[in-house]
Amino acid sequence: MSSVIKPRDAKQLTLRFPCKQCGAVIKYAPGTDLLICQYCGTENRIEQRTGVIEEYDLKEALKRVTETRAEAAVPTIHCDECGAGFQFEAKIHAGECPFCGTPIVTATTEIKPIQPKSLLPFSIDEPAARQRFKRWIAGLWFAPNAVKKYARSDTKLTGVYLPYWTFDSDTVTAYSGERGDVYYVRQPVQVVKNNRVVTEMRDVPKIRWTPVSGQVRRFFDDVLVGASSSLPRKILDALQPWDLYALIPYDENYLSGFRSEYYQVELAEGFDHARQIMDDQIYRDICFDIGGDHQRIHHVETRHSRTTYKHCLLPVWSAAFRYKDKSYRFVINGRSGKVQGERPYSVWKITFAVLASLMLAAGIYYYLDKSGALQKMQENGMVIQQYPVEQPIRY
């Protein structure tokens, strides 16, 4: 089964969410299953959709994607509230009318061949997210004092559903390499005793290398890859973990009042990123399987089978602040409240910290010298030269 939907020739759909009481457009209230009318206050409950969150075959999807036609141009949207016509940014399919602020969600079928099938709704609202941001920016080490003012401001946050891929894959990896075991050899070593350099016999570590080969297996479940280009990948990755076990079937009601993006990282590229994440774990598995004190890995061959994917939307609060003509972006996990972002550093604060550390080290040295502790350390035999342990080589 595949979630790839071939584009239709039908007109682009614009979804509307009217209040059952007064007919006004309503917005989703984070942390609830309600759409709340901001005019009459009526709570409109979202009917829960049932069904299993399915995994889709990766090979079949990649084949179907190559068979579909090119993505359509961004359509013109008509706002039913004010009558204005406009276009969202090319990567956006849910947001607000720029003229009257009405929440608008468009269907994604006409633009992208793969549709989101699940999402995590926002669980923290904008005031709670702003408090998380204030605590985060107030706690930044070595941040310029001018930046701290943003912890006291009412920075406008934008709620965005970002596109993600998840991948499952059953892997079997054959490898060859070497196992390194440390042993000790008695050798002459130069040391300082009583302010004199003397030679003593000591145990010096060496490594004995033994050829090895073997096989490791691992099933990867829900390897998460951000499919948005709006933010650096390191920021997207740092927002983890996500409670993916709580994914619910895709429902446009949860998008009302929020922005939502199409995926910009294609499925094949997403799997390439996922495979890099898997390879890092497989490398650790191989090192554990080889055992010993050190490992060298010469050859690795991994076979993937039963590889599946999901396309889902995950919620973040996003904003930016400017400092010295540069914009710094930050995002807040819309489920856990975890904050990640870019930040400036104060050169003066870092310089002062380094100088303070040097002064502290000099003070400790002076105290040890005056107390005679340095002399005692030398008398106990401080090693000044010995044969180093062989360093492992990793491939």
Rank of each mutant, 00 (worst) to 15 (best):
I5C: 10
D9K: 07
Q12N: 07
R16I: 12
F17M: 09
F17S: 07
K20A: 12
K20D: 11
C22N: 05
I26M: 08
K27S: 11
G31N: 05
L34C: 03
L34H: 10
T50H: 14
L62K: 05
K63D: 10
R64I: 05
V65L: 10
E67P: 04
E67H: 06
T68F: 10
A70H: 07
A70N: 07
V74H: 03
V74A: 09
I77G: 04
H78A: 02
H78C: 01
K91G: 00
A94V: 06
C100K: 08
I104V: 13
V105W: 03
T106S: 03
A107F: 06
I111F: 13
I111A: 09
K112R: 15
P113G: 07
P116R: 03
P116A: 08
S118E: 08
F122G: 02
S123C: 00
E126R: 10
A128D: 07
R132W: 12
F133L: 12
I137P: 01
G139A: 12
L140Q: 10
A143D: 04
P144Y: 07
V147Q: 02
K149M: 12
R152D: 14
S153K: 14
K156D: 15
W165I: 00
W165Q: 00
T166V: 08
T166Q: 00
D168A: 10
D170P: 01
T171Y: 02
T171Q: 09
Y175F: 15
Y184D: 02
Y184R: 01
V189E: 09
K193I: 13
N194W: 13
M201I: 12
V204E: 15
P205W: 06
I207G: 08
R208N: 11
S213M: 06
Q215E: 14
V216Q: 05
R217C: 06
L224S: 03
S229M: 11
S229E: 14
R233L: 08
D237F: 03
D237P: 02
A238E: 11
P241R: 01
P241C: 04
L247Y: 01
P249Y: 06
Y250R: 07
Y250T: 02
Y250C: 03
D251I: 00
E252Q: 04
Y254M: 00
G257I: 00
F258Q: 04
Y262N: 02
L267M: 06
E269S: 13
R275D: 13
Y283M: 01
I286V: 12
C287G: 13
I290N: 10
G291E: 06
G291F: 09
Q295W: 04
R296N: 15
R296S: 14
T302L: 11
T302E: 15
R303I: 12
T307W: 05
T307F: 02
T308N: 04
Y309N: 04
Y309Q: 03
C312V: 10
L313H: 15
A319S: 15
R322A: 13
Y323D: 11
G334I: 01
K338R: 14
K338P: 04
Y345F: 15
S346M: 14
L360I: 13
L368M: 12
S371W: 09
S371M: 08
N380A: 14
N380R: 13
G381A: 02
Y387M: 07
E390C: 05
